[in-house]
């Protein structure tokens, strides 16, 4: 009787290992077949590449920020977009005569690094704490839930500003938390909660599933179960939250820079551009604002849509919800 099922497979006795398709491969296939997702992913990748330019330049011993920042002679107050100086002036100049195009491109670096760093801290932290809370339960769970409820009780933006301010001038182990690292950390501290909550709930669900019971039955230790059975199955939540958190971090960075507590003064960033342009606009200097908002709008849009598609691809169960 058992043979009948085997016969269903045409190449049953070929003797060669048939490669399987993991859920990851499935998700990737779904994603790559999704044209919209791929278009917006391409936009995101363009931004990433732009963001990498200053980094690559610095590897080659060339500081793009200094180059862009170099003093110029003359009054540039009213220099709008022009094609006279080639591509450099295509988006106009700021008050100091620095290319707005350059500023926008360097700002992409800032935004991307903020998005990346904040989430590379927040997501693993949230996942770790969520998995531990969900899997071990009891007192550990109570404590972690208490911690994140506490953080959730303080309005996000206040917490963000407060942390950023608390870090002002604080240097730990040679890292100056008054600058960019503080910003990364502040954004991370305010954004790990969502991941933690989701991962905790998912872990609690997985914990009761039969395959975890089977692993226990085999004599696997708790930590190994967490590592082998729980972690791979909550990983997609981490990836989804990473992509969605990226957008949040970019937006928060702009907001904080607008309040003059984001990136340090002098670092080109979209937030600083908007902050600087805010007063210029009355005088009719729209180009700096427009470039920053435009650049930000496009990347946020691309990330948002790509993130949604990514979620659909990784977690097909949620598809009908959106």
């Amino acid at each position: 009787m058992a043979e009948t099922e085997i016969q269903l497979n045409p190449n049953a006795d070929s003797g060669e290992l048939t490669p399987g398709r993991s859920l990851w491969a499935d998700a990737l296939r779904r994603l790559t077949r999704d044209k919209v997702a791929m278009i917006f992913f391409a936009i995101v990748m363009v931004y990433v590449l732009i963001a990498l330019v200053p980094l690559v330049a610095s590897w080659c011993g060339f500081n793009l920020v200094d180059w862009w920042d170099a003093a110029r002679n003359g009054d540039f107050r009213d220099h709008g977009p022009t094609l006279q100086n080639g591509i450099e002036g295509i988006l106009g100049y700021d008050v100091f005569g620095r290319s707005v195009l350059g500023k926008t491109i360097l700002g992409a670096n800032t935004s991307m690094s903020v998005g990346f760093m904040a989430n590379i801290i927040a997501v693993p932290l949230g996942m770790l704490l969520g998995a531990i809370a969900g899997y071990y339960g009891g007192k550990v769970d109570d404590f972690i839930v208490w911690v994140y409820t506490t953080f959730a009780c303080v309005p996000g933006i206040i917490l963000l500003i407060a942390i950023k301010f608390a870090f002002k001038g604080v240097t730990i182990l040679g890292v100056d938390f008054g600058g960019m690292p503080g910003l990364y950390l502040a954004l991370a501290v305010t954004s790990w909660i969502g991941t933690c909550r989701l991962v905790r709930a998912e872990t609690m669900r997985l914990r009761e599933l039969d395959y975890v019971q089977a692993a226990r039955c085999c004599g696997r230790g708790r930590f190994m179960i967490l590592l082998k059975h729980i972690a791979p199955n909550v990983m997609h939540i981490g990836i989804i939250n990473f992509s969605l958190g990226f957008v949040g971090a970019i937006q928060s960075e702009v907001m904080l820079s607008f309040l003059d507590i984001g990136v340090p003064a002098g670092t080109p960033s979209w937030g600083n551009m908007i902050s600087a342009a805010d007063k210029d606009l009355i005088a009719g200097h729209w180009w700096q604002l427009a470039s920053a908002v435009g650049a930000m709008f496009l990347v946020v849009l691309a990330w948002n849509i790509f993130g949604d598609r990514l979620r659909d691809a990784l977690d097909p169960k949620l598809k009908n919800a959106g």
Partner: peptide, 21 residues
């Protein structure tokens, strides 16, 4: 609505204020 979500609040504010000016 996705477009609306992507425009930063700052842009709304600046644009609104500019218009009012």
């Amino acid at each position: 609505s996705v477009l609306g979500m992507c425009i930063p609040l700052l842009a709304y504010m600046i644009a609104g204020q500019y218009l009012m000016f």
